[in-house]
């Protein structure tokens, strides 16, 4: 086998090793590559900036699991930081069984910083039933009668003026799959006109673009990059920005391998 052929079939293990090294180095020694902010991210930021802390309550739906958390959890944290900074109260809910474990991490951190559960935020926990549950909750947001800490919603002031999902000032779905942002569009946005945005895993971005273009999604945080962009808008540094250098290097390595493969392919064709 000549070297042009060899370069066309590089062993996977070599690719994996180079990628692993390329991803690890910037995590240890960040480069600080500047980041431009997408319109989709800016749109979410703008909506939250325009909310009234005195009257508006935001609904955050934690629909992801530990597996996809590295890609979307930083977005959830960045959004919560913005809400906290503006003094906007929020209600959490999950349509994935692992969701409450994810929101719990955020709430624990907020409580450690002096914010109060029940006053600044609450979590209604997991509601079973996938998309049917989203439909049910959209039409009747009091269908979950107790929160994760066992308090009846009648005793939670944050839920006083909430009857349907339309009563929330803004709804954000942090979503990694099914049920996710598209279930909210079908069950809450289209039939009820709920103001909705999503923070989604990077891989879902192409599929979600038509919904942003149509206005059904008012804004969108595109995976880890979305989180990093949001952090730069709020000025609160988080995990998103730290990971972006690694993403840049990762993409460069993949493009380099594609280029090498094609270069070798053309050379072997010429011969």
């Amino acid at each position: 086998m000549n070297w042009a052929n060899k370069l066309q079939s590089i062993d996977r293990r070599i690719i994996y090793t180079i990628l692993l090294i390329g991803l690890t180095i910037p995590l240890i020694w960040p480069i600080g590559i500047p980041l431009a902010v997408n319109d989709t991210t800016r749109a979410v930021y703008k909506i939250i900036e325009d909310l009234d802390p005195a009257t508006d309550v935001v609904l955050l739906s934690f629909d992801y699991s530990p597996a996809s958390a590295p890609d979307v959890h930083p977005s959830a944290v960045a959004i919560v930081e913005h809400l906290t900074k503006r003094g906007i109260k929020w209600v959490g809910v999950s349509f994935w069984p692992e969701g409450p474990q994810m929101s719990e991490k955020i709430m624990r951190d907020l409580e450690a910083r002096g914010l109060k559960y029940g006053v600044d935020f609450i979590d209604l926990g997991f509601m079973a039933g996938m998309e049917n549950a989203i439909a049910e909750f959209a039409q009747n947001s009091r269908v979950i009668t107790t929160d994760v800490r066992g308090t009846h919603i009648d005793n939670l002031p944050l839920m006083n003026n909430i009857k349907t999902m339309k009563d929330f000032g803004f709804v954000i779905g942090i979503s990694a799959g099914d049920p996710g942002y598209n279930a909210f569009i079908r069950q809450a946005v289209d039939p009820m006109g709920v103001k909705f945005a999503a923070a989604i895993v990077t891989v879902s971005v192409p599929a979600a673009m038509p919904f942003y273009a149509s206005g059904q999604l008012r804004g969108m945080l595109q995976g880890l990059r979305g989180a990093a962009e949001y952090e730069s808008l709020t000025g609160v540094a988080g995990r998103g920005a730290a990971m972006m250098d690694a993403q840049s290097i990762g993409h460069l390595i993949i493009v380099a391998f594609i280029a090498v493969g094609n270069f070798a392919y053309f050379l072997s064709k010429k011969k």
Binding site: A36, R225, H251, V255
Partner: peptide
């Protein structure tokens, strides 16, 4: 790929 990463 390059457009999505800041390095692009």
């Amino acid at each position: 790929m390059l457009g999505a990463a800041p390095v692009g």
